[in-house]
Amino acid sequence: MFRFILIRTGGLIGVLLAVSLLTFFLMHWVPGGPFDAMTAATAQMIPVELVENMEKLYGLDKPLWVQYWLFLKAALRGDFGYSYYASGRSINELIREHWPHSIQIGVLTLAFSAVVGLGLGIFSAMNPGKWPDFLGTGVSLFCMSVPSFVFAKLMQYVLAVKLDWLPTSGWEGWSEPKYWVMPVLANSLGPVLTLQRYTRSAISDVMRANYVRTARAKGLNRRRVTLIHIFKNALTPVVTVAGPMTASLITGSLFIEGIFRIPGLGWYTNAALGRRDYPLILASTLLWTTLISITYFVTDIIYALLDPRVAYVKER
């Protein structure tokens, strides 16, 4: 186990380095610098000398390799520098301000999708060929074929414009459900689909396993077989998808946050891309990558703990 953790940590560092390099150079390759975008946004000409001074201040006049090296040195200390756009504010401060909104939406989405996805998956696997199974298939087809932003707009039209049950957009934190019902529903299409499919196939597999037949044959209580023999074994593969899903949910969706005007990290990153706010783009990409890689890592460990047959490193 220790060896496994060591190897994976090495891999994580490698991936983070590669991703930061890729994003850094791709980002700088995009035409237009941060101060061009600012000029365009305010429709004012900024004197060339001023732009030069600004670039000097943020180190943008140095060669790219030097800039990357400086970024890396600072990032290792947890310092991602200052935003070019929101002047005087550090990236860490901005992330602290915007991320909590995304986390709240993400956690709500996860809770909702877990209930619906697991419920539908279990329900349809236990009743193959009957109506719960058809319901499950219908829901999964819907989740698959309707993109989240399309569903968001359709809901906005029906629930907010036509019926006037909910406000079209806005965000007041998790304590105001009328603002988050639509974002959470729209955001949960993908997670519901994944969880439902995994759960259904995992449970159908386990139901056909010999040990379940044995348990039934020796006359064990039905509920006991379902809870202990089926669920406990079937939910192990579901754990593997839940981790990375959580990571990508809590970093916020560009579409959902944009459509419903939620000032979260996804929305802010998209805006930063338009403003060429390099430090913010880089920091939120790395945040995403780190979270995803860590969840993969943790998932693998949980998996090994749940399933004693799994061994990652050969015993010597």
């Binding site: 991936v15 590669a18 991703v19 890729l22 791709l26 995009v30 035409p31 990409t285 990558t289």
Partner: peptide, 17 residues
Amino acid sequence: ILSSVPSMLLYLLMVLV
């Protein structure tokens, strides 16, 4: 490495480049 970058962000960067 490629699957560790958020795919939408990579699309956006590519489209801008």
